[in-house]
Amino acid sequence: MTKEKRPTRRKRLRVPVLPDEEAAIKKMAASTGLPVAVFLRNVGLGYQVRSILDHKAVEELVRINGDLGRLGGLLKLWLADDPRAAQYGERLVRALLTKIEDTRDQMHRIMQTVVMQRPGR
């Protein structure tokens, strides 16, 4: 069985750009996870180029991170024997620790989906 060889690209196009345009193109290519040449070829051929980041998942991670910060603050109060936390018993602290662990697991699941599969080159 022989492998099919991809055709070698021999032609190059020169496109004059301004320095700020070059920076913007490089930034957009990086956001898709593609080299600049592949990014420009795909755009030039009319392909829809998508970011490799799932922005909704990133926003969800920010929300969850805030929740973890608040939970950690409550735990810190209890561990420091702060009078404001005296009303909370050990059962509540154990529930808080379980909530932190569950939230950490939720973050882990979302982090696995944040970076999407890169499109074929």
Rank of each mutant, 00 (worst) to 15 (best):
V58P: 00
E90V: 10
L75M: 07
E21F: 07
K99I: 08
K56H: 09
D81R: 13
D102M: 07
R91A: 14
P19Q: 09
M28F: 13
R12K: 13
N42E: 08
A23Q: 12
S51D: 07
P119D: 11
P7T: 13
G69R: 07
T98K: 13
G44D: 03
S31T: 12
A37H: 07
R109K: 12
D81P: 00
V36L: 09
R63G: 04
R91F: 06
G44F: 05
R14L: 14
D67S: 10
A57I: 04
V93D: 00
G69I: 03
S51A: 06
L40I: 10
P19D: 09
A85S: 09
W78P: 00
I100L: 07
D20G: 05
E4T: 14
S31W: 01
P16A: 11
R10S: 14
D67V: 13
L68D: 02
Y88L: 11
A95P: 01
D105H: 11
R91C: 03
I52K: 05
T98Q: 14
D81V: 03
R9H: 09
H55M: 13
E22P: 02
R91K: 15
K56E: 15
R12P: 00
R50C: 09
D81E: 13
A23Y: 06
V38D: 10
D54G: 01
R10N: 15
P119E: 15
